[in-house]
Design a protein around this nucleic acid. Structure first.
Lengths: 148, 148
DNA sequence: CGCTTATTGCTAATGATTCTCAGTAGCATT
DNA sequence: AATGCTACTGAGAATCATTAGCAATAAGCG
């Protein structure tokens, strides 16, 4: 279904659904985590789908425009992407020690933001919330390692 | 005062307060907006403070560790920094059309985040919230430009 | 004042992302 | 099925922010 949606999206813009774009889309849909363009490229190569890195870079923004994925973060140098949650959206808690990503959603948070935007006469389109810190395991480890 | 704090921070790490670091710190404190390393470098050069771009890049992370500035965003390729709000912290609304940045703070938002983190057993250190959309003027302009 | 060693400026290197360009392939029409 | 018009692709060069390497300086301590 996402493939059809993407095809329609492309057609509406006079673009074409090619084998490469199909392969990239399929791989993206298979993923549920965050991935970098390089990640995706390596995986595709490993699976035998001959798609160049340039095409991966060219296709990701298209998938984003089509609403199928969104840019998730810019950790270090890499840009990471993730599958769009279809309808809703979620925010992230990122563990600074082990890299764990916790995805969460809070209707209350959304409502609060809407209220804040209204107060500032700001028309909200999207948002990104990243909470940095330590996951449970790492917080415990840190406590054990540096008790002083 | 911030200069003293930075000096103490450096001393505690066996680092030295140099003329260059002093100049960079002074310029950073003079700024109230978001700035890129390049921005800062150009301004310093214009003011006659001979500080190399490499030193700017080397000093910004130190100022961040000292809590004087924080990395604000990654628009395009540039990394932008801003002065830390001293005590509190604020979030951002970014206008996609004119680039306006609205800074805001909401105690309720902070409380809500604390609650969400507790629920996920996550130890929060910091967070970044960027709301993307249109500022009042641009929203009005957009409505006028594309009324259909 | 004289050391020790952190720091600086310059410049080359790095590395993710983008561009270029010649060859290839959708797809609508004939 | 063949043709024409373009979008698309792969490979490698080009960009450009950020880093690393190195010789020359200059903090900060005794």
């Amino acid at each position: 279904m996402a493939a059809d949606a993407f095809g329609a999206f492309l057609a509406a813009r006079g673009l074409r659904m090619t084998r490469e774009r199909g392969a990239i889309l399929a791989e993206v849909l298979r993923r549920s985590d965050h991935f970098s363009p390089e990640d995706l490229y390596e995986t595709l190569k490993r699976r035998g789908a001959a798609v160049s890195l340039a095409s991966v870079y060219r296709t990701l923004p298209l998938l984003a425009d089509a609403g199928i994925i969104t840019a998730a973060e810019r950790a270090g140098k890499l840009t990471r992407w993730e599958r769009a949650a279809g309808r809703g959206h979620h925010d992230h808690m990122l563990c600074a020690r082990c890299g764990l990503t916790i995805e969460f959603h809070s209707a209350e948070l959304e409502r609060l933001q809407a209220r804040l935007c209204r107060a500032h006469r700001f028309t909200r389109l999207s948002h990104t919330l990243h909470i940095h810190g330590f996951c449970r395991a790492c917080a415990r480890a840190a406590r054990g390692a540096a008790p002083a």
